[in-house]
Simulated assay, not measured.
Amino acid sequence: MSDTGGGAAVLTLDHPPANALSNAAVRELTTALNTLAAGPNAPALVLTGAGERFFCAGGDIKEAGAYDAESMVERMTAFHALLCALEDFPRPLVCAVNGWCVGGGIEIALFADVVYASPQARFVFPEIDRGLLPAVKGIARVRTVLGDRAARRLLLGGEPVDALDAQAVGIVDHVVEQGELLAVATARARAAAAKPPAVFAALKRALRTGSAGRAAAAQLRTTIADSRRVFDDPAARAAREAWND
Results as ranks from 00 to 15, higher is better:
residue 3 D to V: 09
residue 6 G to C: 10
residue 15 H to K: 11
residue 17 P to G: 00
residue 18 A to M: 07
residue 19 N to H: 14
residue 19 N to W: 09
residue 22 S to W: 07
residue 27 R to E: 15
residue 37 A to R: 04
residue 39 G to E: 10
residue 40 P to M: 09
residue 40 P to G: 05
residue 42 A to R: 06
residue 42 A to N: 08
residue 42 A to Y: 13
residue 44 A to T: 06
residue 45 L to P: 04
residue 46 V to A: 07
residue 47 L to N: 02
residue 47 L to I: 11
residue 48 T to C: 14
residue 51 G to Q: 01
residue 62 K to I: 09
residue 63 E to K: 01
residue 69 A to C: 01
residue 70 E to A: 13
residue 70 E to M: 09
residue 73 V to N: 06
residue 80 H to S: 12
residue 82 L to N: 06
residue 84 C to S: 12
residue 85 A to E: 08
residue 87 E to R: 14
residue 88 D to L: 06
residue 93 L to F: 05
residue 94 V to M: 00
residue 95 C to S: 15
residue 101 C to F: 07
residue 101 C to M: 04
residue 102 V to K: 03
residue 108 I to C: 08
residue 111 F to N: 11
residue 113 D to N: 11
residue 114 V to C: 11
residue 115 V to Y: 09
residue 116 Y to K: 07
residue 120 Q to P: 02
residue 122 R to C: 12
residue 127 E to V: 04
residue 130 R to H: 15
residue 130 R to K: 13
residue 131 G to T: 10
residue 134 P to M: 07
residue 135 A to F: 00
residue 136 V to C: 10
residue 140 A to R: 11
residue 142 V to C: 11
residue 142 V to N: 01
residue 144 T to N: 10
residue 146 L to T: 03
residue 149 R to F: 06
residue 151 A to H: 03
residue 151 A to Q: 03
residue 152 R to V: 08
residue 154 L to R: 05
residue 157 G to P: 07
residue 166 A to M: 01
residue 169 V to N: 02
residue 180 E to R: 13
residue 190 R to E: 14
residue 191 A to G: 07
residue 198 A to W: 02
residue 201 A to K: 00
residue 202 A to L: 00
residue 204 K to T: 06
residue 207 L to M: 14
residue 209 T to R: 12
residue 210 G to A: 01
residue 219 Q to K: 12
residue 225 A to E: 15
residue 232 D to Y: 07
residue 232 D to C: 09
residue 235 A to L: 07
residue 242 A to G: 02
residue 244 N to D: 13
residue 244 N to Q: 14
